[in-house]
Every structure is written in structure tokens, then in C-alpha cells.
């Protein structure tokens, strides 16, 4: 399902719920985006290969996350074909040296090493190779919401299809919680909302349960 399909389902289920909640498209999108972030964590655990992305680099020592095609989540591996062994390894503490207090890497041809810091990956020595990393579809901020909605709208591959109901239920919980905060509900209505949120939470737990047992049987990635 793409973002548009999720929007339709969430809107329909919210509006027609026991307590009807009507939200504009932008708010619905925000709830959905939060739900994508939640499901992403599970999806990454269960289907890691779904997110592994490659990036070729040529004779550089440092790769900024911002230069990658997709938002960077986690490093998977670095392949350096010209080295004796084709994978760079993470530098040990004894392989750092310092210039003016700034850590530098003491890698060499045939034994390339790397370090990962807040915004970049540094490879020593400067070389050619391929970076494999786990991509993310981006953290959604208000300013880039429109762009993200457009992108997600046409993209079926945000999340593995096993997570559809998990996304919808999670977004419903967010929407109900928001409704409780922004609407002036009397005590009775608040109780209704609390039990509604509890019911969705139970459903969500039931949806997550089979995924845990399923993972144990299928050959590991």
C-alpha cells in the first residue's frame, strides 16, 4: 500500500469509528508518518535486506550522510575492491592518532579501516569502493512534510507489506490521543476515548505477536 491507500483507510476508520474523529489530510499524514517510523523499527529487524542500499564512492576519505541518495540509518559494510581483503573494518581505538586533539585514522592500503561519527563515515586511506547502508525514508518535520507526502504517496516500498495493519492501528492510536488532547471532552467522552485507545492497543499487540513467532522459523537473513 502507498501513502494514499493508507490515508484512505485511516480516514475511513477514524470517521466511522465508535467515536467519529475527523481530521484534515495534513494531520492524518502526520499521524501516519509517526506510524511509519514505529513500524520501520520492526521492519528493519525482520527484513533487514529490504533497506540495504549501495553507494559507490571514488577516491574519497570522508562520505557525508547528506550526500547519500537516501537518509542514512545504519552502516552495513564497506567494500574496497582494491584492498587485499575487500571489506574495510571498523577502526580499533589503538588505530587512532591525534592531530590537535582531532582523531585521525591510521589505515593503509591492504588494510583499510573506517570510523562512523555523527554526520559522516571516514575511510582510511582514501580509496574507491562501495558503501552498504540501511536507508530510512526520512524523519518528518513540518517544513518538509509536503515533499515527503508527495514522495511517500507514490512509493509502495516504504514498508514491507507485512506491516500494513500495524501502521493503521498505530496511527489510529495517535489520532485518538490527539483528539483527546485538542477536543473539550466531558468525563464520559474521555472514558470512551481511553477505552477506545486501549482496544486499539490490544489489537496492535495481537498483530505484532505472530511476527515474533514467525521470525523464529524462517531462515535468518
Amino acid at each position: 500500500m502507498n501513502h494514499g491507500d493508507f490515508m484512505y483507510e485511516l480516514q475511513t476508520r477514524l470517521e466511522s469509528g465508535v467515536v467519529g474523529v475527523s481530521e484534515d489530510a495534513s494531520t492524518i499524514s502526520i499521524q501516519l508518518n509517526r506510524a511509519y517510523q514505529f513500524a520501520y523499527q520492526y521492519c528493519l529487524d525482520h527484513f533487514p535486506w529490504f533497506y540495504v542500499t549501495s553507494h559507490s564512492f571514488t577516491n574519497v576519505s570522508a562520505i557525508l550522510y547528506s550526500s547519500l541518495a537516501f537518509p542514512f540509518r545504519k552502516l552495513h559494510a564497506i567494500e574496497v575492491p582494491t584492498a587485499t581483503f575487500g571489506m574495510a573494518r571498523e577502526a580499533g581505538f589503538d588505530e587512532y592518532f591525534y592531530i590537535n586533539g582531532i582523531p585521525q585514522l591510521a589505515g593503509r592500503a591492504g588494510n583499510p579501516i573506517y570510523k562512523v561519527d555523527k554526520s559522516q563515515i571516514t575511510i582510511s586511506p582514501a580509496c574507491t569502493g562501495t558503501l552498504y547502508y540501511y536507508k530510512h525514508f526520512g524523519d518528518i518535520a513540518d517544513t518538509d512534510l509536503t515533499a515527503n507526502i508527495t514522495t511517500l504517496g507514490t512509493q509502495d516500498a516504504i514498508l514491507h507489506p507485512a506491516f500494513e495493519e500495524i501502521v493503521v492501528l498505530n496511527a489510529m492510536i495517535s489520532a485518538y490521543s490527539r483528539h483527546m488532547q485538542v477536543s473539550e471532552l466531558n468525563m464520559r467522552q474521555q472514558d470512551d476515548m481511553i477505552s477506545l485507545i486501549g482496544a486499539q492497543q490490544d489489537k496492535l499487540n495481537r498483530e505484532l505477536e505472530p511476527l515474533v513467532s514467525w521470525q523464529k522459523v524462517i531462515p535468518a537473513a
Binding site: H76, A77, F85, M87, Y132
Partner: peptide, 9 residues
């Protein structure tokens, strides 16, 4: 993918 390098070189 983290084993590609070994199998190539």
C-alpha cells in the same frame, strides 16, 4: 552484502 568483499577478493 557485508560478505561481498570476501567473496570477490
Amino acid at each position: 552484502p557485508d560478505k561481498i568483499g570476501f567473496r570477490k577478493t
